[in-house]
Amino acid sequence: MIGDIATLTQAIVTGILLGGIYSLMSSGLSLIFGVMDIPNASQAVFAVLAAYITYWTYTLVGIDPFIGMVFSAIILFAIGIVMYKYMVSRVSGLMAFTLLYMVAMFLENTMIFVWTNLYRGIRVPYLTGSINIYGIYVPSDRLAGFLISVIGFGLLTYFLKYTYTGKAIRATMQNPRAASLMGINVNSIYLFSFGLGIALSGFAGAILGIIYPFNPTVADEWIGVMFAIVVFGGLGSLMGTFIASMIIGIVSSLVGTYASLVWSPLIAFAILVITLWVRPSGLMGRKV
């Protein structure tokens, strides 16, 4: 009986750690989706790109992954700005989604072309092994990833709540027309949010690259999880995204522990489809 409780606690702790990382991973998608109403299908591919940038700056130049992470986020921010200015702003709605899906395909296959399908992993020498807390194992790389994610998510929430730009972003989220009448330059808000959203996935991609081995095609798995989280959490609600990340993280960990690991990827899709069926606006989102 004691053993059972230990297994359960272990599964839940693993799930919480995973959920925390998911929350940062999905925050960029949630932001772009909320502000522009565009589900950015290329989000996960940019996360993989960030993982590669971090990997190469670490292996070739020897820059610490936690600094490389910031570096790759800055690069992604620039890419996001350019992409919005010259591509995304020309199309809208469904066409924008199709465009971004094709951009994702382009980047994914370019990465396969350049760096092959080989799995790579970022090994941080001072983050090996795990911490043992009352019989529950917490791998230190996951713990570090979790802490960075939660702090990052907290900073994002603070930024959106209390700064001028953050307030402008939220106003645009609620009603772009009214926001522009209040003197907010909606176009530059779009530009900035798109860059920020992609940069956020850059952080998350680097963290995932430290925890899991990756190759360009893992983006397909990640994007499924991200869409599930954002739709389940509700459009335009960062709080919803956070709760949904935790739920999906914990449920997939529980399924992986008690049923079989092969079923845990299905959880995200099942939750996504059920949400769209029963309550398309998600947990805390506005009506769609």
């Binding site: 589900p39 709605g93 924008a96 199709t98 499924g224 899709f269 769209l276 398309p280």
Partner: peptide, 25 residues
């Protein structure tokens, strides 16, 4: 029944996920 009520990109996401789910199944 569940997906055709969805508009625009939501339908795209739903069908994309369903095809992934079928592959896993």
């Amino acid at each position: 029944y569940p997906t055709l009520r969805l508009k625009g990109a939501y339908f795209a996401i739903a069908t994309l996920s369903l095809s992934f789910a079928l592959q896993i199944l």
